[in-house]
Each structure stands twice: as C-alpha cells, then as structure tokens.
Amino acid sequence: MLSASNAHPQKKGDTAVSIHDLSVIYRTTLDKRPTLRNRLLHASRGKKQTRVVHAVSNLSLDIPYGSVLGVVGANGAGKSTLMRTISGILPPTSGRVELFGNVGTLLALGVGFNQEMTGRDNVILGGLAAGLSKSEIESKFDEIVEFAELSEVIDAPMRTYSSGMFSRLAFAVAVSVEPDILIIDEALSTGDAKFKTKSLDRVKELRSHNRALILVSHALATIEEVCNEVIWIHKGKLISRGKPKSVIADYKKFLEVGSSPMIDEDV
C-alpha cells in the first residue's frame, strides 16, 4: 500500500486529497458499555439508547500537492475524525474521499508498540503497522535509531524506556515512512525541547512539491510557522480556509470571545 512512492510522480498543484460532501456520524450507546444485558433490557422498553454525534458534516475540501495544510479547531471539533476518515480508518457515513497518492498517518505515537519487546523489535513492529514492508524497515533501521538518538538502549525492553524515549522512537518510526500524503495529529508536542525542535525540523524537511502534509495542532505558533494554508473546523463544519495569519487571527479572536461572526453566519 505504502511502497513504491515513486510510482505516481506528482506535480505541485495536482490534487492530493479530494473530499466531497463528507459526513461522519458516530453512534454510541448511552450506556457505558454496549452489553447484551442492556440491549435486552431496553429492547423491551422500546427506548432508543443511542446518542448520535455529527463529528464531520457536509465538508468538502481539496488539498493540492506541495501544500502544508494546518488544521485548527476547538476540542471536539472533529479534526481527528476527519483525519481518521482520510486515512481510511473510519468509513464515511456519506460523501466520498479520494486519495491521489499513498497516505501515512501519525495519529498517535507508538501505535502497535509492545512494551515487553526490545526497541529493535518495536521499530519493526511499528513500521509494519504503519504499512512498511520488512525489507523497507531494515534498510531504514539505522537511520531511525540514529534520529531517535537511542542506539545505546535499542536492545533493551521498551518497558525500561522513559515516556520521552518512547515517543522519540515512535516519532522516528512514523516519519521514516515518507508517504505522498502525511497526516500528523498532535504528535509534535512530545519529547523534550531539543527533540521538539528536531521533530519540527524534520517536518519542515518533509515539505516538498511532491508531497502534501496535513498538520493538526493546538500549537498555533507552530502552525503559523510551518503551514502555507490553514483551515478552521468548528463542530464538524469548515468555517474558513486561507492564509495562516488571517485564519489563525480569526480563530484566536473566537477563542477569546467564545463566538465569532463567521460561525454565526454559517451555522
């Protein structure tokens, strides 16, 4: 899936991701856990026990190659949900998502890692989880370990790592994938200050015309520094899209006041 990234040469301006009228709805039971017992109890009373959350509603968006798109929005705005749909983790409830390249995701750090195994085994496991093949991981192994600066402890079990070391290795694995479309959700804010700069530098390095980056973050300064376009999502709707400075200024104003004329118009 993620291999052979040169098979589809892209030009700046070509569409990377195209989203048409996308809606994603979560249906959750109001009970803490969906159990057979509860299902039977409530079936007899005929009560509807589901809560419906419109996490993304009727959103359309085109993302061209060569762009670094920042995504901002309050907690629960639907940013992570949108990213999960683009990466194929969640199916759309309606609408469609078209991808013109392979996607790499960094939605959470250390997905697929196993605490009992060594760092070395986890690099392989994490890489496979991210969609690399075994031979691709082996060829990138030294680079990953060097970037994470963990060559001394790479053969120690992961449970002996500090949480910063854990995230460093996880980040190093994730960015080694080098997909056409890279989605990063809140994963830059880990590690110590030095590693933070280093990971940000790596993201800047990844900017190129034949790649599209999507960056979700609450660190507005970072977004403004790295991105060349920003979208603002509120309650699953696209509120505005444009130059980082102006969108972030609007968003900041909204955060202070708690409402915004832009939202009132749209909702």
């Binding site: 899936m1 070509d14 749909t85 194929g88 759309p92 409830t93 013109f100």
Partner: peptide, 28 residues
C-alpha cells in the same frame, strides 16, 4: 487529472468491499 489511487465511500450494509478487504489482508 489521473484517476484516484484510492476512494473511500460509505460501506454498503455496514460491510467494506470484500475483494479489496481480502487483498489488503493479504498485503498485511
């Protein structure tokens, strides 16, 4: 514009397209 490499559509009857699913399973 070339054809998309991948398209995600709503699942029909809650099920993903079977053939694609199985080939993904094999590739993993």
């Amino acid at each position: 514009m070339s054809a998309p490499l991948e398209v995600f559509l709503p699942f029909k009857g809650g099920l993903p397209p079977l053939r694609k699913y199985l080939s993904q399973l094999y590739s993993r």
